[in-house]
Amino acid sequence: MGMQRSLPAERILGRGHPRVDAREILTKYGTVIALLLLVVVASFASPRFLSPVNLMNVLRQTAIVGVLGIGMTFVILTAGIDLSVGATLALSAVLLAGTLDATGNIWLAMAAALLVGAFVGLANGLGVTLGRVQPFVMTLGMLGIARSLAFLYTKGEPIPVLEMDFLKLGIGYLWRIPVPSIVFLALLAVAAFALHYTRFGRSVYAVGSNEEAARLSGISVGRDKVLVYVISGLTAAAGAILYTAQFAAAPAIAGEGYELDAIAAVVVGGTSLFGGQGGVVGTFIGALIIGILSNALNLMGVSPFAQPLAKGALIILAVLLVGRGRRS
């Protein structure tokens, strides 16, 4: 990935450039303010909220949806959407568990998962670009296909994962931080770098801001679009690795509804569904907001009937807050 800074495309498309302006600051602060407010409310609501064990729990609980959110951010930045990530996670997970069961080789199993994820992403990307199928429709179809393949592969029965070395990835700690969270943060750093310091990252913003202008300025829009879906497929596969390592089983229903959680994290994090605005750091904060809310509701003993209401209201509130920042 090149580091040249003076491509014609970027000079023309100032909006995609990672410069800091007032609107962006407000947008970012809106999310951070929401996060801080939530932390304060949660720590008053439950004295145990700020205990180290609980904070580590929140970090671990956030990791899988957060990882899916990274890939989702790339897709949404190009004004696309990927509804297939939960199902891709399931398909990758069952193939990972199946490979692990057959070979006992952790690396081969993880490679299989990543390969499947990349392949599903490639299919999505080609459908959207070459096939000109709307992203919503393409990935909705893929959701069904991947989920069904996972069911066919497992015949409905979860595949247990008993390889202790592999499970350490899900339940272990490194520097007292849960390994899944470290994986999440590492992927986040890579993604932030790619988005802000590479030519590819800048063209993702350009494509999302104005596809036609991006094309005219020499960006190969099709290739970049295919790439963002491949990235989303890969992060879904990374999510699958964390899922199977954390729960020691790969059921075909794994990750059901995760696509909506990932989209919520991206949107709460301030990335616009219309593309071109936002970023993965916002998604990190968005994932934390949703994770903390869910954690606090459980700590407070809120009835499971009422929890979705609170989460729904929070999503709308957070976006309202960020939207205010964006308009002013």
């Binding site: 439950s46 145990r48 205990s51 064990v53 609980n54 729990n57 671990r60 609980q61 979860p158 899922y243 954390q246 729960f247 020691a248 089983a249 059921p251 229903i253 794994a254 869910s294 954690n295 459980n298 700590l299 407070m300 003993g301």
Partner: peptide
């Protein structure tokens, strides 16, 4: 009915 929501819930219940 499944494993992953149970892990998250139990994490939180054990803290609370």
């Amino acid at each position: 009915w499944i494993r992953d929501p149970a892990v998250r819930l139990m994490d939180d219940f054990l803290v609370a």
